[in-house]
Amino acid sequence: MARINDVGGVEGFGPVDTADDSEPFHADWEARVFGLMNALRAQGIFNLNEFRDAIESMPPGEYLAASYYERWFAAIRTLLERKGVIEPGELDD
């Protein structure tokens, strides 16, 4: 079935907010998540397609509510838990 990321032609997302915002990161943790993704990929812990797959597999409500780098972090967690690198819940408070 189609996944939530597959939005081409889907109605209802409203007008484009065309504000010229090209700040790469809006918080330090976003930069860290960016770095983590690249480091883990470089080490072969997961590949780019697995990473995309993990983002797309988010429950639709969570995907839509999450910011760009929140999605990245969710995908990193999913993959690291699936591969046994970390324990489920190990990052929670």
Binding site: F46, N47, N49, E50, R52
Partner: peptide
């Protein structure tokens, strides 16, 4: 292959180079 382009007719513009099939690579 986005769902909006499934079962649709098109015309090949050009080959772009060979790459691993993402569908399989995504399973690690």
């Amino acid at each position: 292959l986005p769902r909006y382009a499934r079962g649709k007719r098109g015309v090949v513009v050009e080959p772009e180079g060979r790459a691993e099939l993402a569908d399989v690579s995504a399973r690690g």
